[in-house]
Structure formats: structure tokens, C-alpha cells
């Protein structure tokens, strides 16, 4: 050759080039082998093992970092006091206790993805559709799962009765204020399956949350918090729900005959798998078998592959995952 290099340039590209050029066929080539293995080295139904680190932020009431493969999410919980006198529409006395948290908005999650966590989310941008939907899905699940006992968030005061009241009535318990929990969820790194990891981070942070003893000071007419650690109480969770997401990668297309299409369930998908599947199923389960069943949420939209049999398979996998992760979270 002219420049003296006689080694001919190779005609094949490295693996990474194929992944960048044609991600769909790249994923398909891995899965269609006799023993399918995903590009990330996992088996189709194999999930990533998360690591949980609780109490990593010193200035929050509770915090946790959860890392699941290349997805790392940090969650911090900050408690603020909402005075009952500041409420424009105080809850009526007959309001069901379980509706109180939703009525007053005592749980405020926010998901932030614009941290440079993945090339798809540029830092500094306003929250996109994904961030907003994640925020909403977490909020809706917090409300529908009823995992927090509303009495943990109430700050009450025993008010002595005045002379005008009947003499035989004891002191009356008055709700003076409520704890509002601001749940900030930041993705430090995102490689697929943001919802499962974010939800797990929220659960781990709740397990770590300590609320100081707050009381109504009659003389100063304000809510005070006790600085003594011994009086602070840990937030109790009724359940620890676990979310499991499955992507369905399918070769079905309107240009192909239906019986030629093949599909695979990919548990705990990474970013590449998420982008190349049109269908995803999220199942939220609780480990404790309480009355009415162990399923809290099933979400799936788009795609036509998933049927009852596939769903049942996914629920079985999710049940195993739920047992494993809730023991892990209980140890936090």
C-alpha cells in the first residue's frame, strides 16, 4: 500500500458499532440464538440485583441510594410542618383517615431526570414527559397503596375543656398540624427501568425516615420540635410494595405475517432494550398476603403480544422478585 501499511482494513466492525448502527437487529440477533442471551449478558428473565444504601444524605429526614445495574437513583425525604390553621379547606371530620393524605397532599414526590443521567435527558432542561409521568405514577401509587399510616403524619394536641363545656367530658384531641413529606428523586445514572428503581429508592428512603417529636406549645401557640433523638420516631410502613417491569421485544410488524413474529419477555430492561420494545408491563405487588390479594397495580399500554399466559408468567417472576426485594428492604 502507498503508506507502507500492508494489513488490510478489517471488513467486520466491532460489536459496539453494530449496536449503535442497528440496535433493533442487534438485540434480535442475540435473542434468536438457541439459548437466548441479552446483549448485557443476562438471561431473558434475569433481573439485576440492586444495592441499597440508606441514610446517605445527612440533611434530610430520610434518604437512600439504590443502584440497579447502571441505573442509580437517589431519593431524599424532607419533612415540613403544615399548620392546620393555614389550610384553606380543612378536612371535614367525617373524612376517611385513608383519604386524608391525598386530600391534603401530604406526600409530594418529584422526579428529576435532567441531571445528565443519560444522553436522552439533557442536563438543565425542564422536566420532560418521562419525568412528569414518573412523578405522577409514583404519586398515584403512594396514594392507592396506603402504605403510610396517616396518624404518623398528624400532630395533635390534647386541649383542656373550657368551663362552658360539659363537665364530664375529658380533654379533646385537636389536630394542630400535619407533616408534609417532600420526596425528591434524582436519577444520577439511567440505564432503563427508571420506575422500578425510583420506587425502590422511595421505599428505602421511607424505611430510613425519622420524624422528630413535634408538639403544640400552648403558650407560644406554635408547633415545636423536640431536638432529642430519643423522642424522634421512625416512620412506619404498612407494606413494602415492589414494582417489576418487563419489556416485550417482538419482531411483529404490519409488513410481516403474524405467525412469523417472535417475542421475548425481558425482565428489568436496560435502556437499549427499552428503546427497542414497543410494549412494557409493570406489576406492583406486596409481599404480605392481606385480604383482597397481593396485586396493587398492573400497567401496560401499546403492543399486542402480551396475553393472559404471558402476564401470568410475568406475575410469577414478579412475585419471586417481590419476596427477594422486600426482605432486602426490610433489612435496611
Amino acid at each position: 500500500m502507498a503508506n507502507g501499511v500492508n494489513a488490510s482494513p478489517g471488513l467486520s466492525f466491532p460489536r459496539e458499532t453494530f449496536q449503535k448502527l442497528t440496535p433493533g437487529p442487534f438485540l434480535h440477533a442475540h435473542l434468536k440464538r438457541p439459548s437466548p442471551i441479552r446483549p448485557n449478558g443476562r438471561l431473558p428473565e434475569q433481573q439485576r440485583t440492586p444495592t441499597v444504601n440508606a441514610g446517605s444524605l445527612t440533611h434530610s429526614n430520610g434518604s437512600a441510594v439504590v443502584r440497579c445495574g447502571d441505573t442509580a437513583i437517589v431519593c431524599g425525604i424532607r419533612a415540613e410542618i403544615l399548620l392546620a390553621s393555614d389550610l384553606p379547606y380543612p378536612p371535614s371530620e367525617d373524612l376517611d383517615d385513608d383519604d386524608l393524605i391525598e386530600h391534603l397532599g401530604l406526600l409530594v414526590p418529584n422526579v428529576e431526570l435532567s441531571t445528565g443521567c443519560s444522553p436522552a435527558h439533557l442536563p438543565g432542561n425542564p422536566p420532560g414527559t418521562l419525568a412528569q409521568s414518573l412523578t405522577y405514577r409514583i404519586l398515584a401509587l403512594l396514594h392507592s397503596s396506603n402504605i403510610i399510616d396517616p396518624s404518623d403524619l398528624k400532630i395533635t394536641h390534647l386541649e383542656a375543656q373550657t368551663d362552658e363545656d360539659l363537665p364530664d367530658v375529658g380533654p379533646r384531641q385537636v389536630k394542630k398540624a400535619y407533616w408534609t413529606l417532600y420526596i425528591d428523586i434524582l436519577a444520577i445514572a439511567l440505564d432503563g427501568n427508571a420506575f422500578d428503581t425510583a420506587w425502590m429508592a422511595v421505599m428505602a428512603a421511607f424505611r430510613d425516615t425519622i420524624l422528630p417529636k413535634a408538639y403544640w406549645d400552648q403558650d407560644r401557640e406554635m408547633v415545636l420540635c423536640s431536638p432529642r433523638l430519643a423522642e424522634a420516631a421512625r416512620l412506619k410502613l404498612r407494606d413494602i410494595p415492589v414494582a417489576s417491569t418487563f419489556s416485550i421485544f417482538s419482531t411483529a410488524s404490519p409488513l410481516k405475517r403474524k405467525d412469523q413474529a417472535e417475542s421475548w419477555i425481558l425482565a428489568d430492561p436496560d435502556a437499549l432494550e427499552e428503546e427497542n420494545s414497543k410494549e412494557a408491563l409493570t406489576v406492583v405487588l406486596v409481599s404480605k398476603h392481606s385480604a383482597g390479594g397481593n396485586m396493587l397495580r398492573v400497567e401496560k399500554s401499546g403492543g399486542a403480544v402480551l396475553d393472559k399466559v404471558f402476564t401470568a408468567t410475568c406475575v410469577r417472576l414478579a412475585e419471586a422478585r417481590c419476596r427477594e426485594l422486600s426482605t432486602m428492604l426490610e433489612a435496611v
Binding site: 392481606s290 390479594g293 396485586m295 396493587l296 397495580r297 400497567e299 399500554s301 403492543g303 393472559k308
Partner: peptide
């Protein structure tokens, strides 16, 4: 073909099916 599924509340697999 099942195109959309959104379920919330308390249920088990048998009930969902």
C-alpha cells in the same frame, strides 16, 4: 389482542384474569 391494561386497587391474579 390485549392492547391496554391499567389496573389499580387490591386484587390477585385470578381476579385479574
Amino acid at each position: 389482542e390485549m392492547l391496554l391494561t391499567e389496573s389499580t386497587g387490591r386484587f390477585d391474579l385470578e381476579l385479574w384474569e
